[in-house]
């Protein structure tokens, strides 16, 4: 009887850990697919699209995750094949300096104007 109980506990623990690991993999897969642009669709991510291109990408991403390849390496692989455009989140590089820095500059400029108008005027 004891042996059956131990066996049942081991079986249940393994089942739960397998479920948790599957859930983690699915979350990672969704995260990656949502960050990949479907190149033949209008404004859709691979995650949202049912096109042939998107379903092939989904299979490739699945395979890469199964092979233990990291999220970053999957993006790098796709970037190498299709260029920067395929990834929604653009990399910080010479070409994208304006894209990344302009909001910061505008935010600082706006802050400076508000500071000047509100605080300095009060004094």
């Amino acid at each position: 009887m004891k042996i059956i109980k131990i066996f049942l506990i081991i079986f249940l623990t393994q089942g739960i850990s397998q479920l948790k690991s599957d859930e983690k993999t699915n979350k990672l897969k969704s995260k990656i697919l949502k960050n990949i642009r479907c190149l033949i669709c209008q404004g859709q991510s691979v995650y949202d699209s049912e096109s042939d291109f998107a379903s092939s990408i989904k299979l490739v991403v699945d395979k890469k995750i199964d092979e233990g390849i990291s999220e970053k390496q999957i993006y790098e692989f796709l970037r190498h094949k299709y260029g920067d455009w395929i990834i929604y989140n653009p990399k910080l590089q010479q070409k994208t300096y304006i894209l990344w820095l302009l909001p910061l500059l505008l935010f600082s400029l706006g802050g400076a104007i508000i500071y000047k108008n509100l605080i300095i005027k009060k004094k």
Binding site: I40, D52, F53, S55, S56, I57, L59, V60, K81, Y82
Partner: peptide, 13 residues
């Protein structure tokens, strides 16, 4: 069969 070979080449259609 599933288009994955095309992806390896960087094809999209």
């Amino acid at each position: 069969n599933n288009g994955t070979l095309g992806i390896e080449f960087g094809a999209y259609g």
